[in-house]
């Protein structure tokens, strides 16, 4: 997908030993300069028999709520109120709407084991990671594992929603937990200067980061992804992405899903147009590498960047 200032990439690959892909993702640019991105990872253990559906519902709900939030954020509003909406209203709305989706599905497809209402959510258990970018604001929400990685305008790479402390006990954070909205982590980053919007934002399920031996390797991967996007453009990376995710899955064994939004460098020729235009205009340009040459081995490969 291409919008005036952003390129969006995304793909999902089933884990090698999985019966089905329990991840889901979606991206949207409902207006110029507005991005809504989401990934979800349905829980993998046997009890979560419908988690692939739970993940899908979670993404659908986030996209709906995220678009509404983006619309609100684009209108002039007191920043404190908007922050309150981001921190309190949206998490609750997401959980409520997700529960409603699950209830609706249960009505048509009962579990048949007499589960009570609260317990009935469990088979649909899933994580959720979503982001909204509008002029002046970058906000993201996370419940459970997964990785929001941000390449800032100055090139630094951060993971703003990484938990500050490791989880206590063995409770998994999930949309199916009681009062799950209270477990949601929120990234809130007003951007007063448009030039300081992040250069690249990626959301991925933990199948990707777990394929690295250490967090440093994953950070390096994100850094190089952004660099490759700067040099090669989005099309080449888009072509290579499924291969990288599949390769990552062979290490983590998990379903692997990633979406990324990349902002073309300010002042670049195609800043306000389709980046593919440049490839067509300048086929001899060294950066205009045909997608077939963007081989996974040449690319910022998950396991070749960690050492």
């Amino acid at each position: 997908m291409s919008v005036p200032h952003w390129e969006i990439l995304g793909d999902s690959v089933q884990g090698p030993a999985k019966v089905r892909n329990q991840d889901w993702y979606e991206t949207d640019a409902p207006a110029d300069d507005v991005l809504v991105l989401a990934v979800a990872d349905g829980h993998g253990s046997a009890a979560y028999t419908r988690s692939h559906l739970g993940a899908r519902f979670a993404v659908d709900v986030f996209m709906r709520c995220g678009r509404a939030f983006a619309e609100r954020a684009r209108a002039p509003e007191d920043l404190r109120r908007l922050r309150h909406a981001a921190g309190h209203w949206l998490p609750r709305e997401i959980v409520r709407d997700w529960q409603e989706e699950v209830r609706r599905h249960l009505r048509d497809h009962p579990l048949g084991d007499g589960s009570d209402d609260a317990a009935a959510f469990s088979p649909y258990g899933t994580t959720l990671l979503g982001a909204v970018l509008v002029p002046g604001l970058f906000a993201a929400w996370q419940l459970g594992d997964g990785d929001l990685m941000v390449v800032e305008a100055d090139g630094s790479v951060g993971a703003p929603l990484a938990p500050a402390e490791p989880e206590l006990g063995d409770e998994t954070e999930s949309l199916c937990a009681p009062r799950a909205w209270e477990l949601m982590r929120v990234h809130w980053a007003p951007v007063a200067d448009p030039d300081r919007m992040p250069r690249c934002v990626s959301l991925s399920t933990d199948g990707l980061s777990k394929s690295f031996a250490a967090q440093e390797g994953f950070i390096q991967f994100v850094r190089e992804l952004n660099e490759r996007l700067d040099t090669v453009g989005a099309d080449g990376i888009r072509e290579a992405l499924p291969g990288w995710l599949a390769h990552a899955g062979t290490y983590s064994g998990d379903d692997t899903t990633a979406v990324a939004a990349w902002r073309r460098p300010a002042g670049s020729e195609d800043d306000s147009g389709d980046p593919r235009e440049r490839l067509r205009r300048d086929p001899a340009h060294p950066q205009a590498v045909p997608p077939e040459n963007t081989h996974p081995q040449d690319a910022p490969h998950p396991h070749e960047t960690e050492n």
């Binding site: 800032e152 100055d154 200067d193």
Partner: peptide, 8 residues
């Protein structure tokens, strides 16, 4: 960084 002030 996306903040208003740069390091330094």
């Amino acid at each position: 960084m996306s903040g208003m002030l740069d390091n330094g």
